[in-house]
């Protein structure tokens, strides 16, 4: 049972969380103006990388808050969790936080 670091509650058991898919896929500003294909991309298409992935998580059995995480889909390691209003961390920032030991 993995521990997931909720940015609000700290490390908690994974069973308290639910997965919310790829992060940073905003609801389109004007869906009516999108072509069928563009809309289908929003509704159905998601990245599925092996490795580092920005994801949404929900601490449903805890604070009930949504947050974002950078997780490695091959090792399951959470490299960073951040709040929804934080920008997506860049590669250099992730590397720095790992060196400084501030990555979870």
């Amino acid at each position: 049972m993995q521990l997931i670091p909720c940015p609000w509650c700290g490390p908690r058991e994974e069973a308290e969380f639910s997965y919310g898919g790829q992060a940073h896929v905003p609801y389109p500003d004007s869906p009516a103006e999108l072509s069928d294909e563009e809309w289908a991309h929003y509704v159905f298409f998601r990245a599925n990388p092996k490795g580092r992935f920005a994801e949404r998580w929900n601490h449903g059995a805890g604070c009930r808050r949504w947050f974002n995480a950078i997780r490695d889909t091959a090792t399951y390691r959470f490299e960073r969790v951040y709040r929804l209003d934080d920008p997506k961390p860049g590669v250099t920032e992730l590397a720095r936080s790992r060196e400084e030991g501030t990555a979870p």
């Binding site: 919310g20 609801y27 949404r56 929900n58 449903g60 009930r64 949504w66 929804l84």
Partner: peptide, 13 residues
């Protein structure tokens, strides 16, 4: 309830 929370938190804070 979860559905409402998801939209309120993630899209329309």
């Amino acid at each position: 309830l979860d559905w409402m929370e998801e939209w309120v938190q993630t899209e329309w804070p």
